[in-house]
Design a binder for these strands. Structure first.
Lengths: 236, 236
DNA sequence: TTTCTGCTGCCAGAATCTGACAGTGGGATG
DNA sequence: CATCCCACTGTCAGATTCTGGCAGCAGAAA
């Protein structure tokens, strides 16, 4: 195996382990001496990979992900850039910022002519519906990623308010509104919640007792196509 | 310079040259012997780079683009994937297909856990407005890229039809409608054309006499913020 | 303290890369 | 047709890089 392939493997291996891994293990896993492993890690760090080593513990790859070299056609790049611009205009501030960052990273490595093409090819207009969501959807996405319970106040279509504790597992982006899908402890069932009707969002440290994947699968099974289509109207 | 850096340079150099380049030139440009250059090219081809060499001519990089290794945070990947999914649902078939391809390429290199995260994090609903555009927007994008004139029939808001020959230079994606921005030969001015009012689209081989970049800049200068915002209503 | 582990310098052998030379075959040109 | 240009392959010796083992230092945990 060539050195460059091995470096990529190293990153993948580090991603798999969530807890710190000691160099010895990594070296064995790649069939290489410890000395070489240290050199490889140094090389990756030199190239900007966020690997941290601590004596007595081991190595951790800080959250993030390295996309290996990929070939895209002109149209695929256009699609990615256009999509990211759309996200950059979304009311979800954190995600919008992430899209902007991603765009500038991509633009930085694009050759000049292609970058010009992209500047010209698209112009997305405004937030279309800056339907002021008071809450930070970043918190919702974080809760989904880490499978934690989420508390908030919900005002339903009729105007009645209620306090909810839910197990969120998905987030839908519709034209005019964002919808969180979760298991609701109050209703003891799956429910959709429109982001613009939520308030007083509080993230908790409590891990909910089911796997996000399983709930998603179950929820999908309870839906037929037509029900899903109207999800944005029928939130809770 | 290390070999791996040199390989990336090679791709960049090839991208810069639109006409075939002979090996000798490339070798000189990188300060390396011709023999080594052949080896480098072979390596790149082995990694899937679409480089074509023909005796008596030289090398060309087939259209497309190689994204070098890039670090993205979790949120940036989420943003890119979400955006690409949105594009994948757009009525522009070609672009939608490109987005789908790009997504599968990205998914292929994502570690399992991250891929699962992404499956769960978003669910974009439907084409929202499958407002049947009869025309193939791919043709428009192609004309923009190559700076060619475009002919079509246009039916304005009042219902009156007219035949147009325009110099297209930008394309806007709004929630419900796509708008082409172009210099109209009939009106001798910049005009917006809603895609759903265009028909009988015919690409020509005639290169229009101005640089796309320049027109875009000029067009932007003639707009103030409010004018651009309402572009989707005021098409032509 | 001891133990574990990250990290660095050094060195010799292994692996790889590189340049030069020779030769083949296809395309373009005259 | 002959000629030139150029992509492409094989080979081989020397330069370069990589690798593993060893010795030693520093910080964290038990």
């Amino acid at each position: 195996m060539s050195r460059s392939e091995r470096l990529l493997d190293l990153i993948q291996i580090l991603r798999r382990h969530r807890r710190p891994v000691c160099g010895r293990t990594l070296a064995d896993e790649m069939g290489v001496s410890i000395r070489t492993l240290y050199r490889d890690i140094a090389t990756l760090q030199g190239q900007g990979a966020p690997i941290e080593g601590e004596a007595g513990l081991g190595y951790v790859l800080k959250p993030g992900f390295m996309l290996p070299p990929l070939m895209f056609t002109d149209e695929e790049i256009e699609a990615i850039v256009l999509g990211s611009r759309w996200v950059a205009k979304q009311p979800d501030k954190r995600l919008a910022a992430a899209a902007t960052d991603a765009l500038s990273k991509i633009a930085a490595v694009l050759p000049d002519d292609l970058r010009e093409d992209l500047d010209a090819t698209t112009l997305l207009v405004g937030p279309s519906s800056a339907s002021g969501e008071a809450i930070d959807l970043g918190i919702v996405r974080q809760a989904i990623r880490s499978e934690r319970k989420l508390g908030f106040l919900y005002r339903d279509a009729g105007g009645a308010a209620s306090e909810r504790m839910v197990w969120p597992f998905a987030l839908g982006f519709f034209d005019k509104v964002r919808v969180m899908v979760a298991w609701c402890e109050l209703r003891q069932d799956f429910r959709h919640f429109r982001a613009d009707r939520m308030s007083a969002l509080t993230a908790t440290e409590i891990r909910y007792p089911r796997r996000r994947q399983a709930m998603l699968k179950e929820w999908r099974a309870t839906l037929d196509g037509s029900a899903r289509k109207t999800a944005q109207e029928s939130a809770d």
